[in-house]
C-alpha cells in the first residue's frame, strides 16, 4: 500500500484524478490542520468521486462521515485517510436533505450514514437499512443534532 507523503501531494493527485473524472469542473479546496485537504464537491458527485479515488489512487479507507448543521445548510464531510487526510465536503439543503448512499462502494459507510440519518435526518438514497442506530426506537422528536432541535425532553432521557 503506497501512502501519500503530504498534503500538497495529496491535493495535486486528487485534483488530477478529479480533473479526469469530472472534466471541465473546478473544485474549491482548502487545507486544514493537522494534515487534511478539504475539497468541496456538488452533492451528486460524491459516489463517482469516491469511485475514482479508489480506482486511481487506491484510497478505500473512509474514516467517517461528519454531519454539521451550519444554520442555513447541512454539511457532510467524508473523511478519508491515505498517508494524510482527505476530506470531501458536500452541502445539502436543510429541508429534505438527500444524497446517494456510499454503501455500494464502501460497505463500511453503513454505520456512519445511519448515524447521520439519526442525528440530522439526512436521507441516503439506496441505503439498505436506514433504521435507528443510536436513538431509541421510540424517539419521535426532530433529529437531535440539528440546531433547530432543542434536544431531548425530560421523559426521553
Amino acid at each position: 500500500m503506497e501512502l501519500v507523503k503530504d498534503v500538497t501531494e495529496m491535493r495535486a493527485r486528487v485534483l488530477a484524478t478529479f480533473a479526469e473524472a469530472f472534466p471541465g469542473q473546478d473544485f474549491e479546496t482548502r487545507e486544514i490542520p493537522t494534515d487534511d485537504v478539504v475539497i468541496t464537491l456538488p452533492a451528486g458527485n460524491v459516489v463517482a468521486a469516491v469511485g475514482a479515488l479508489s480506482e486511481k489512487l487506491g484510497m478505500t479507507h473512509l474514516t467517517t462521515i461528519t454531519g454539521d448543521d451550519m444554520g442555513d445548510e447541512i454539511r457532510l464531510l467524508y473523511h478519508m485517510w491515505h498517508g494524510c487526510g482527505l476530506t470531501l465536503e458536500v452541502k445539502l439543503p436543510l429541508t429534505d436533505p438527500r444524497i446517494a448512499t456510499l454503501t455500494e462502494q464502501i460497505p463500511g459507510a453503513t454505520m456512519y450514514e445511519r448515524e447521520i440519518s439519526d442525528m440530522f435526518g439526512v436521507v441516503f438514497d439506496g441505503h439498505p437499512d436506514l433504521s435507528r442506530l443510536l436513538l431509541p426506537d421510540s424517539w419521535d422528536g426532530p433529529p437531535p443534532m440539528l440546531k433547530s432541535s432543542d434536544g431531548a425532553k425530560e421523559d426521553q432521557v
Binding site: I32, P33, T34, D36, V38, T63, H79, W81, G85, T87
Partner: peptide, 12 residues
Amino acid sequence: EAISRSEAPRGE
C-alpha cells in the same frame, strides 16, 4: 476547523 487523528488501543 481542524481534524486530529491518533492510534487508540482499538485503532484510529
